[in-house]
Design a protein around this nucleic acid. Structure first.
Length: 897
RNA sequence: AGGCGCGUAGCUCAGGGGGAGAGCGCUACCUUGACACGGUAGAAGUCAGCGGUUCAAAUCCGCUCGCGCCUACCA
């Protein structure tokens, strides 16, 4: 970095000129690198690992901005921050990407074979997989890139295997034949969470199954008539009078001719449909369970792509399930077995990834027995080892945990952690081991074959908080940074990820993976619609960064984050507003630099004098700064990103720029005393330098660029301390007196605007202060008053009668008059005063009512009563003074046109 | 079917027993040597509705009405 500081900034702020440069600077300095050997308190977070195939979307922009704010804030506060980044291998998504690539080349995964395919995926990952990492850097994320992790790298794969083996040995992982959610397009099992229910207009078909011995038929209802080909029974409720005598008899399955027993099982809802249910054990989870209970046989009638297999009559073999449905319905109709077809709205589960209708399918899979893990995870939240913000998410968490089913973790994919189980053809033994076994653990036969399936990507993500720190080794990092301080993510992966990390952390580390979970809402479009490719309303954060700068994007995310965790409707207008804010700061700094004089060349900021040597505005802005420093820090401590952002916005724009800079101007003018100017510069610089530091966690690039141009100590603002509030600078008197000054200026500006007086015209001011503090304030700030209100002079008078035509106003303890001989329109002035009196009276009314209520006087807290009295007194007194003015105005009509 | 959340200015949202707030937008005026990505002044609200508690309710409680979201094996 250059050590020279150009004294003048470009007129407009242009983030593209410096963002990349400062990011490189931070990396070169090692600002983001955690120091496990440091004696500072650790602060740690793991990034929610984005898919290695992923591109940065607004959700990433939101939660990584918030994490970065915390990381930079804690780092400046002196913590040893570890923000650990990385990506996950995204089994299905990545396999699909490479599948497509192969298809374009006219080949396929099957042609290549497994080993070559996996090698090909790695090649793809090396070439394209890191895109999102570069995008996070564009956002300014201060992750420790020296510790970047990937779920498929050897160390993390080892952790996955270790966990699998231990859970298996503890009986918490088992292999079983069960109905799973099967995606016929992805040709793999998926977990309950990956099935998205879609409300769908379908049909309820009622079909007659004739009794074998004749004498009518039993009617059953179904939404999936093609499954009848796999029926092995009919069930009724054991206490259903209608069917009591039918249990034990048999019916003939239409189109197939198979004889099906009628069984009794309490799962049947007597009120639904006909009260009799066809049982298709291999293609429905409830039916499978019922079949297990009643001993009905199980018949699989579809293949892995959901085409009817050879277990169905010849005409249906090879048909896709939906084609089979049409044919079955047609044939049933022709056979006279179809009794009715009714419109029926029901939920159809679709594959989260490809939208294909999920088929409940009987297959052999690996499962995690989650009940014991879930119970422990619920307990950890109940006793406060993990705290949620906002807290209402605990309800959802608990409810999900209480209804949880075993987790199907095997996937019929090639890209992922292959399941460490080996089968022996000789004796049938299953060997589950950390290392590839040379022989069967039971019979010693050589070379058992490994299960071809891989594990759910979320299985490895669940280990992320400790696998990334070196587990199962007890590394210094693991001992120092586990559990994490905070985990920050959106609510949509609360169950997928957060809940599972808590379970695994408790199981394998004996403690929760993080103390605090901060859950954000989802970023939506400006109309509040969820962003999706199909809607075409996806906003690319990188384009926003290009248009407004990373700092404006980040500030928007922070300012829009609500404490209730509500969704964020993204408004580009608002973002443009925050870019304007960045420009405002840029120009405030520009002003300061332009007025620096030789102080600009000093290596460090000049010291600010003690209170006695300061002007009222100096004392005021320093007091406001002290308050801001305390408020911003407190806000971040409570995850109130919005409050922190708004406090900074308010201070910088409306206090520092609107008032302090303006009040400083007369002190910097050529004719001002050198000492006066020097003191003013010291305050200007001091406040700016500190507020840049307070702002740095949200707007890292802009603050670095400006800070480097000011006199400063250190190599980066990212390494500068977060300013502690300077309690000694708190100054209630200065705040009170400047408030009066602002009120007086406001009144005069109001007079000017409402009486349509040329903004450039300098006005005379006469005032009468009825209390000593007000008199001292106005006299002491005469130059300021003249500048801010554009006056020609400001003179105190013992009374304001006899001035002739003058616009009049009142502030707290001060009467104001702007003599306007020859200009004042008495009619306008009268109307203006009447409006003002009216406003004051309306405000006064509510207070008067309270004071007239004996119960209020008697029961309200005394300080409240006193406050209401004071307000009432002030409003009353102001209104009275204006009324007297109004009366005196009646005598002066000379300037009326 | 259960659960959670939300209805405050035109829009997006803070606030949460004691003078209704912010940003953007809107109106009028203004290129004043930091900034027109700017300045000054202003208009704008039955705090969804009804009832209750309280001296006092936008705020606490109950009900109603709207709107979201999550969970669930209704064939």
């Amino acid at each position: 970095m250059s050590t020279t500081r150009p004294s003048e900034l470009e007129k407009a702020f242009d983030p593209s000129r410096f963002e990349d440069r400062w990011y490189a600077h931070w990396i070169a300095l090692g600002v983001f690198t955690a120091r496990p050997a440091s004696s500072r308190p650790p602060f740690s977070m793991v990034i929610p690992p984005p898919n290695v195939t992923g591109r940065l979307h607004m959700g990433h922009a939101l939660n990584n901005t918030l994490q970065d704010i915390l990381a930079r804030w804690r780092r400046m506060k002196g913590d040893d921050v570890l923000w650990l980044p990385g990506t996950d291998h995204a089994g299905i998504a990545t396999q699909m990407v490479v599948d497509r690539e192969l298809a374009r080349e006219g080949t396929s995964r099957q042609t290549l074979g497994r080993e070559a395919f996996v090698a090909r995926v790695w090649t793809w990952k090396e070439e394209y997989g890191g895109a999102i990492i570069a995008q996070l850097k564009r956002l300014g994320c201060s992750c420790d890139w020296t510790r970047e992790r990937f779920t498929m790298e050897p160390a993390l794969s080892r952790a996955v295997r270790e966990v699998f083996v231990r859970l298996y040995e503890d009986g918490l992982i088992y292999r079983d034949k069960f109905i799973v959610n099967w995606c016929p397009r992805c040709r793999t099992a998926i977990s309950d969470l990956e099935v998205i229910p879609h409300e769908t207009q379908g049909h309820l078909y009622t079909i007659a199954y004739p009794y074998s011995e004749g004498g009518g038929a039993i009617e059953v209802a179904t939404t999936r008539p093609e499954t009848m080909l796999g029926d092995t029974g009919v069930a009724v409720h054991p206490e259903d009078e209608r069917y009591r005598d039918k249990v034990g008899r048999t019916v003939i399955l239409p189109l197939v001719g198979r004889r099906l027993p009628i069984v009794a099982d309490a799962f049947v809802d007597r009120a639904f449909g006909t009260g009799a249910v066809k049982i298709t054990p291999a293609h429905d989870a409830n039916d499978y369970a019922a079949a297990q209970r009643t001993g009905l046989p199980v018949l699989v009638v579809m293949d892995e792509e959901a085409r009817m297999n050879d277990n169905v009559p010849a005409p249906y073999r090879g048909l896709d399930r939906f084609e089979a449905r049409r044919r079955v319905v047609e044939d049933l109709k022709a056979a006279g077995a179809l009794r009715s077809v009714k419109d029926h709205v029901h939920n159809v589960g679709r594959c989260q990834r490809c939208q294909t209708v999920v088929e409940p399918y009987l297959s052999t899979q690996w499962f995690v027995r989650v009940r014991p893990l879930a119970d422990a995870a619920v307990q950890a939240v109940a006793d406060g080892r993990v705290r949620f913000t906002p807290p209402h998410w605990v309800n959802s968490y608990n409810e999900w945990m209480s209804k949880i089913h075993d987790w199907c973790i095997s996937r019929q994919l090639w890209w992922g952690h292959q399941i460490p189980a080996w089968y022996c053809d000789a004796c049938g033994h299953v060997t589950v081991a950390r290392d590839t076994p040379a022989q069967c653990a039971a019979c010693g036969t050589a070379a058992p074959w490994q299960d071809p399936d891989v594990l759910d990507t979320w299985f490895s993500s669940a280990l992320w908080p400790f696998s990334t720190l070196g587990w199962p080794e007890s590394t210094p990092e693991l001992r120092r940074y586990y559990p994490g301080t905070v985990l920050l993510t959106a609510f949509d992966i609360l169950f997928f990820w957060v809940a599972r990390m808590v379970m695994m952390g408790l199981r394998f580390m004996g403690d929760v993976p993080f103390r605090r979970v901060y859950i954000t809402g989802l970023v939506r479009d400006a109309e509040g619609q969820k962003m999706s490719k199909t809607r075409g309303n996806v906003v690319d954060p990188l384009e926003l960064i290009a248009r407004h700068g990373a700092d404006a994007v980040r500030f928007t995310m922070a300012a829009m984050t609500t404490p209730g965790g509500a969704d964020l409707p993204l408004s580009e207008e608002r973002m443009a507003g925050y870019r304007a804010f960045a420009n405002k700061i840029w120009n405030a700094a520009r002003f300061v630099l332009m007025n620096l004089g030789e102080a600009g060349a000093a290596p460090r900021p000049p010291a600010v004098p003690a209170r006695d040597a300061l002007t009222l505005p100096d004392r005021w802005i320093l007091s406001r700064l002290a308050r801001l420093a305390a408020d911003a820090d407190a806000a971040l401590s409570e995850f109130r990103f919005d409050e922190m952002a708004n406090a900074l916005y308010q201070f910088l724009w409306h206090e520092y720029c609107d008032w302090y800079l303006e009040m400083a101007k007369p002190h910097l003018a050529a004719q001002a005393a050198p000492a006066d100017a020097a003191r003013t510069r010291s305050v200007l610089l001091h406040v700016l330098e500190r507020v840049l530091r307070l702002l740095h966690p949200v707007m890292p690039f802009l603050t670095e660029e400006l800070w480097q141009r000011l006199p400063h100590e250190g190599e980066s603002i990212a390494l500068a301390p977060y300013p502690a509030p300077e309690e000694a600078r708190r100054d209630d008197e200065a705040e009170r007196r400047v408030a009066l000054l602002m009120e007086v200026v406001g009144k005069i500006r109001n007079v000017r605007a409402e009486l349509n007086i040329d903004p450039g015209r300098r006005l005379p001011l006469r005032y009468h202060a009825s209390d000593d503090e007000a008199a001292r304030t106005l006299a002491g700030a005469r130059a300021v008053l003249i500048t801010l209100a554009r006056l020609e002079d400001a003179q105190e008078a013992s009374g304001l009668d006899g001035l002739g035509p003058a616009a009049r106003a009142v502030a707290a303890g001060v009467d104001l008059a702007v003599p306007l001989a020859g200009v004042l329109d008495v009619g306008s002035e009268r109307r203006r005063l009447e409006r003002e009196i009216e406003k004051l009276s309306r405000e006064r009314e509510g207070h008067a009512r309270k004071l007239g209520n004996a119960d209020f006087i008697g029961k309200a807290r005394p300080e409240v009563v006193e406050k209401v009295r004071a307000i009432h007194r002030e409003l009353d007194e102001k209104a009275n003074r204006l009324r007297r003015t109004l009366v005196s105005l009646e005598g002066t009509g000379d300037a009326s046109p």
